[in-house]
């Protein structure tokens, strides 16, 4: 088992607010890891730390055998880390196709034909019919799908997905799950933050629960969900969705 991502004692504070506290875990290559936790627990911050948008206050992050703790986000992307943003950040003045073209041109090197790579991803994620539309004119759901598409177009080894299933219909959610499973089957490792627990459970091999910036549970998804303290933290959502 090769470790793709390794966090060791990672801490992050905003002033007095500690949003990551001694976060330590390994992600084996090829794994799909789910992350749940209440709002404000520090899940998105964890992605900012792994993706390089924010430097940790202390601790180490290694990716693919290299220490990347101080590596800028763009270099991490080129090394193979891609992310979606919980609040979509489309390139609003560009077409959907161009949004992907930026990613396939500048992401992890190896796309000798960025146009073809971008077009291929649009087929996979079902955004092809929007290819030449202005990204600024997309609906929120389409913008979320663009986040996923653009991240995929970088050609990642590790894909970080931040709440992309919210608001989808049952059928759309089913398609999304299938897409993510397909991506994983090509060897891409995934960390997925999601409130729609049943969608998450259909994909992930492992589940981490975060509360107040701390990992409070980590392991087999069903076992983790069954823990009383997780039930307590997660009551509302787990009762409703895991059913």
């Amino acid at each position: 088992m090769t470790v793709l991502l390794e966090l060791k004692g990672v801490n992050k504070s905003f002033g007095a607010l500690r949003v990551a506290q001694d976060v330590t875990f390994d992600l084996p290559e090829g794994q799909a890891l789910g992350v749940i936790g209440p709002n404000g627990a520090g899940k998105s911050t964890l992605f900012n730390l792994i993706g390089g948008a924010l430097p940790p206050s202390s601790g180490q992050i290694a990716f693919d055998g290299h220490d990347v703790t101080r590596t800028p986000a763009s270099a991490r992307c080129r090394a193979g880390v891609a992310r979606s943003f919980q609040i979509p950040h489309p390139f609003v003045g560009m077409s959907v196709f161009e949004n992907l073209l930026v990613a396939s041109s500048f992401g992890e090197s190896g796309h000798t034909d960025p146009e073809a790579a971008a077009a291929h991803i649009l087929d996979i994620t079902g955004l092809r019919h929007r290819a030449n539309r202005h990204a600024g004119s997309l609906t929120l759901l389409e913008r979320k799908r663009l986040e996923l598409s653009r991240a995929l177009a970088t050609g990642p080894k590790l894909l970080l997905l931040d709440e992309i299933a919210g608001g989808l219909t049952e059928g759309e959610c089913h398609d999304l799950v299938a897409t993510i499973k397909d991506v994983q089957s090509t060897g891409v490792s995934i960390i997925w933050i999601e409130h729609i627990v049943h969608a998450l459970m259909a994909v992930v091999d492992r589940l981490i629960v975060i509360d107040f910036g701390r990992i409070v549970a980590d392991g087999d998804p069903a076992t983790v969900m069954a823990q009383p303290e997780v039930q307590e933290i997660y009551m509302g959502i787990s009762v409703e969705d895991a059913a």
Partner: peptide
Amino acid sequence: VAAESVGVN
């Protein structure tokens, strides 16, 4: 921030 996240230095 998005440009940086898709590999643009």
